[in-house]
Design a protein around this nucleic acid. Structure first.
Lengths: 89, 89
DNA sequence: TCCATAAATCGAAATATCTCGATATACAAA
DNA sequence: TTTGTATATCGAGATATTTCGATTTATGGA
């Protein structure tokens, strides 16, 4: 599920339109992700925390919302490392 | 550990010499794998069964020994599938 | 046929992972 | 300051994974 969330975050249009006054932000709020994932709020909040801790997303707090977006640099580094690992296999 | 075993199996010389009379076989017996992995006999037997079920190795019984060797075709197909999956990420 | 050895199977303990509901915290608006 | 909404944290249940020791099965040799 966490991988699917990362994929969804590649395209903002996977989620409802930006909240009024936040059209410029690329991130997506937890509630939108939760709605799409159909898992509980606490689970998604937890997952986004794990993804952040792993370096796959960046969080930006604006008011009561936390907007999450991909951290492309770390994701690409991770992919390179996995590919390297797979080469051995 | 199962991935490490697969890597070991790429090179027969990761294990002791073939048993007398089985020099022509490319596979490796369970006991050799167990010795290298430093896990219990039952664990390794179980793991080799899982690897076989997953299609990553082929088993060949000769006498009391079961010789396991990589199934390159399936491994490469798997790697291609994983790479494909990673591209989405 | 009986025994020894290799491998497979079984049942279980320890640990990790996924997911939840309840509660706490942060913040904005009234 | 009170209230409502968004998110985070906590504790726990269900399930999955890793690994083990004990036992069973298969097989070759004495």
């Amino acid at each position: 599920m966490r991988r699917r969330i990362l994929e969804w975050l590649k395209d903002r249009s996977n989620f409802p339109p930006a909240l009024p006054g936040h059209e410029d932000l690329e991130g997506v709020c937890v509630a939108y992700i939760q709605e799409k994932a159909k898992l509980s709020q606490s689970t998604i909040s937890n997952y986004m925390g794990l993804l952040k801790q792993a370096g796959f997303v960046k969080a930006e707090r604006h008011g009561q919302w936390t907007f999450y977006r991909r951290d492309e640099e770390n994701i690409q580094a991770f992919l390179a490392a996995v590919k390297d690992e797979l080469l051995k296999m």
